[in-house]
Simulated assay, not measured.
Amino acid sequence: MTARAREPAGQDAAGARISVIICAYTHARWGDTLAAVASVRQQSLPPAQIIVVTDHNPALCGDLAATLPGVLVTPSTGQPGLSGARNTGIAMASGDIVAFLDDDAIAEPEWLKYLADGYSAGPVAGVGGLTLPRWDTRRPWWLPGEFDWVLGCSYVGLPDSAGPARVRNLFGGNASFRRSVFAAVGGFAAGIGRSGQALPLGCEETEFCIRLGQHQPGSCLLFDSRAVIWHRVQAARCRFSYFMTRCYAEGVSKAAVTAAVGAADALSAERQHAARALPRGLRRYLADAAGGDITGLGRAFATAAGLAAAASGYAAGTARRAGGRRR
């Protein structure tokens, strides 16, 4: 048997160099962050550069720098939050392609290879992959697959083809972009996404991807299910209360995205998901219940409740912004 040769560090078949950015903010994820870095170091296509950005936590920055030789550990110079940390990493990156991995995720060994391969498919601005849950406990019996995005994971309704498929936006914890696009359209918006608020907000990558498409309509974003990472799901995120809070927060976040890029683009994928994937799932769960699987009723209820919570959050976020403009 002939061993497969490793590519030159950080280069795909076309010679593009890849920088991987991991954003960290707390010692509570110390083991997760080290595991994330280790998984990047074990890629069949080694990165040219690994950057760990700490979000305004000097002690964490110092500890990681002392523990991770060969990794560029740097403090965020942007506003507190994930967008500011990512933008700091982008500014430090030297690769032609910038890839992002969550600090509580582990990448499969072929992750970077499949992300890099996508850039040979024409005017591709970014490539993302499949994010699967890595449960601390077990999957909640009531959780519909169409709502796995609540956990930061890929969900039922995304393209299920074996190869790359075109999408509107990528998920920030498993995504890559040509570094040149950030110079062209700017970085992640600081006013959108997670930044330590009580609500678990998001959508900073959604806004960026839509803005990218508006500025570069000839480019495209690809989702490749072969580029796999495993995202840790802690027990606290398996509670129904978290599910409802996260759905509401997603609605609030979508209101912010709508204000930034317009409703037509901000809600196009969401309307399609609500009109197609959710009704299919609801029918399937009710059929499960009718067939004797009582857990189907729980998934049907969660589908309706989650949609209602997201709509309520969107309405509240829209009203709040309208009130702010009148002042």
Rank of each mutant, 00 (worst) to 15 (best):
Ala105Lys: 01
Leu307Thr: 01
Ser312Thr: 10
Asn169Trp: 14
Ile229Trp: 04
Tyr242Ser: 01
Val257Gln: 03
Gly323Arg: 06
Arg139Val: 03
Ala300Arg: 01
Pro58Ile: 06
Met1Pro: 08
Ala85Val: 05
Gly152Leu: 03
Ile97Phe: 01
Ser154Asp: 12
Tyr25Ser: 13
Val156Glu: 13
Gly62Gln: 15
Pro144Ala: 02
Ala249Tyr: 01
Leu143Asn: 06
Arg211Pro: 04
Ala256Lys: 10
Leu115His: 13
Arg226Lys: 11
Arg4Val: 12
Thr245Met: 15
Ser176Asp: 09
Leu101Cys: 05
Ala255Gly: 00
Asp288Thr: 00
Ile97Asp: 02
Ser154Tyr: 10
Thr137Val: 15
Met244Arg: 08
Leu130Arg: 13
Thr54Gln: 06
His273Tyr: 14
Ala13Gln: 12
Ser76Phe: 04
Asn169Val: 00
Ala275Asn: 13
Phe188Tyr: 14
Ala275Ile: 09
Phe188Asp: 05
Pro46Phe: 03
Pro133Glu: 05
Ser180Tyr: 09
Leu267Ile: 04
Ala287Val: 09
Gln216Asn: 12
Glu110Cys: 08
Pro164Val: 11
Met92Gln: 15
Ala36Asp: 10
Ala305Phe: 05
Leu158Met: 15
Gly70His: 10
Ile22Ser: 04
Cys220Lys: 13
Ser94Leu: 14
Phe182Gly: 01
Ser268Glu: 09
Ala183Gly: 15
Thr258Glu: 13
Gly291Ser: 11
Glu146Ser: 11
Ala183Met: 06
Thr131Glu: 13
Trp30Ile: 04
Ala85Phe: 10
Gln11Glu: 14
Phe223Tyr: 15
Asn57Ala: 14
Arg134Asp: 15
Asp160Glu: 15
Pro58Gly: 09
Leu278Lys: 08
Gly187Ala: 07
Asp96Tyr: 07
Pro80His: 09
Arg6Met: 11
Ile192Cys: 05
Thr77Asn: 06
Ser195Asp: 15
Asp96Ala: 13
Tyr155His: 14
Val257Glu: 01
Val53His: 07
Arg138Lys: 14
Gly296Ala: 08
Ala125Gly: 11
Ala316Pro: 00
Met1Arg: 05
Gly62His: 13
Ala9Pro: 08
Gly296Trp: 09
Ala255Thr: 01
Glu108Ser: 12
Ala302His: 02
Ala121Gln: 14
Lys113Asn: 12
Leu278Gln: 07
Asp12Val: 08
Ala308Phe: 00
Ala184Tyr: 12
Gly218Leu: 10
Ser154Lys: 02
Gly126Arg: 04
